[in-house]
Design a protein around this nucleic acid. Structure first.
Lengths: 204, 204, 204, 204
DNA sequence: CATGAATGAGAATTCATTCAT
DNA sequence: TATGAATGAATTCTCATTCAT
């Protein structure tokens, strides 16, 4: 009685939702939340504005999900790194490098994570995201302090500082040249910074 | 038609201009650029919206100047600290503490410096501000590396990281309590973080 | 390509049509025309929005028919009462009571009949409905005047007044309490009002 | 220091507010609330849509005020009639006639009072208006019952019926012809109806 | 023939900027 | 010169209707 939804159609639907999320992320990444009006996202995704509301009940919900998805994805990668059996120092470095490398090449997080949204509710979500992000770093820091690799410190504050440090360093349009080789150097420099900050004057 | 502007009038004009800038800064500090509409600033300054355009050709220009003024003020304070004859390590710590202390108590910079403005041109100005800000830290870092207090490092990147670290740590709504005593602890923790990052495992 | 419609199918089609009408009526009855969007009616009827257009060329046509059907049903009941061989006074009272009783308990007419639709064409239909409704009362009034039970009067106007009187009295959220016993009292009071209005000071 | 607002300007402002209210009323009267979009009202009033919001915080507020103003005006007139020292029967007739006469000639109340608004909050206001309206009639009815002019009856219900009766009779596009002479006849017929309903078979 | 995803016109609301007074 | 009323473009969201599957 009810028509079967063809696999093709099902795919299209899932595609649309993903395409919307991707378009939103891309627009935020390139021009901040200001560039991500509903009609801009719709155009980027090749849909009408009305269609947006089939997939997301409001602009707010769309962007909360954009943030959530981005951060969940990122955190899961970092978590995998951070939970490895290895010295805290190595895990911290690996996590920062991993994040930085991805941020530099793809539109996955970076700006969306930093740019301030117009909507207070989305802003709240963004802050939660940064905190979830910080949790990962708090864990390595705690482990390092426990193992004696890192000196006593406020892991709360240090985690926030690490997040701030590398997002700032990544987003800031760095100097005139930004070739591929520079990318590697930048990543290294950021990781070095964070590791030094965590370890202080403990001997290597 | 030639028009002599009386000294009294000139003063009033300058007053108004300052009042507008101050009002704009205050609004941004308390509610982000979202809260700083032309009419809100006008109301806060006790002027009409029309009058705003006598002092600033556009909203954009006003906020570019707000940022510029704020950062100039802040940088001049930090510059004074950073140019003192003292070990780089002490100067760095003093600079971070000075900034953090002011950010925590007053609406002077902080949010305006972090919040994303609505206007692309203002956004560009904000980035320039963060860079000007970074310059100060680059200078201490360079000095420290030269004197052997700090290890070799990309001072470019480290400066960016430092700016990112303390703005993030300051803005992030930290934990449940934020009493006055906490403020001091927070400032200390941030400064410790930055100093460790700069110095690494050089012995104290 | 010739296509025999099986009896079973015909029945299903008729069923759907009735189900749509019933759903539309129910929604209007409970939330006014506001609540009766095409998709709400479709959902209530267990059909797709697209299917609606197989049974009705437009939303407009659907609601014109909703009104028409409702009023036809109601008028046929009243007509039966009004055509009985009995004193006009009794017939009038019975008709008003009958309508009021049904309106109070069921979603058959009431609100759909009173609520203003969004569409001008539906609105026109609604007015026609009220007039068809008035016709019934005009007939009793005419009979009563002819028999001397009622004094001379503009039966046109009196009929309109009667219709207005009881719809208003029914819809108006009356006083605090509306228990079952109150329903009876309300119906009586409305009928009394209408009978007094029709009969005036003729002796009982 | 503050510029004096010229009397001319003050007048324009008050004018605008009144013009908006009048335009809104006119549009509702002629085409229901559906015809009274913000832009339609703005156009009718010779203003931009933006200007509307200088005078009314929202569409909702505008229409609540439209209703309130209309009903307050109308009720004050009726109240004056109803409070006169005269037999209840005369007062009732005069009140109905007064209302009907005004409704027929001007766009003052009528439809706005009957048409269902799109917005639930405005709808609530409309119902309150009808109740305030009913109060006036309840008072005369009570007086008449007390003086013995009217028989015992539910004045609550009777008042609602009276309001319903004359609004319906007035709005319903009556018959083919509606010349000036007909207006008088219509008013008389409505008043007769209401008086008969109130008085029943008490002898004149 | 049924489905429901997609469309797109239209509605309310906001706000930087202008200009008559 | 100062005022703030007026403008109008832009934004989010809704919903009747269509059409590919």
């Amino acid at each position: 009685m009810a028509y079967q939804r063809s696999p093709l159609m099902q795919e299209r639907l899932a595609d649309n939702r993903q395409r919307i999320l991707r378009s939103a992320r891309r627009l935020v990444a390139s021009g901040g939340f200001r560039a991500a009006s509903i009609s801009a996202v719709a155009a980027e995704a090749g849909l009408s504005t009305g269609a947006m509301y089939r997939y997301f009940p409001s602009k707010k919900d769309l962007f909360v999900e954009v943030l959530d998805e981005a951060v969940t994805h990122e955190v899961s990668i970092l978590r995998e790194i951070v939970d490895r059996p290895a010295p805290a120092i190595e895990r911290l470095r690996a996590a920062v490098e991993s994040f930085a490398a991805r941020a530099l090449q793809g539109p996955y997080l970076a700006y969306a994570f930093i740019a301030e949204p117009t909507d207070p509710e989305v802003e709240a979500a963004r802050i939660v995201c940064r905190q979830r992000f910080g949790e990962v770093f708090k864990d390595v820091l705690r482990a390092g302090v426990a193992s004696g690799e890192f000196p006593e410190q406020s892991v709360e504050v240090s985690a926030a500082c690490i997040v701030g440090a590398f997002t700032e360093a990544l987003v800031r349009p760095v100097a005139p040249s930004s070739k591929a080789s520079d990318a590697h150097a930048l990543i290294d420099a950021i990781a070095d910074f964070c590791v030094r900050a965590a370890r202080g004057n403990r001997s290597a």
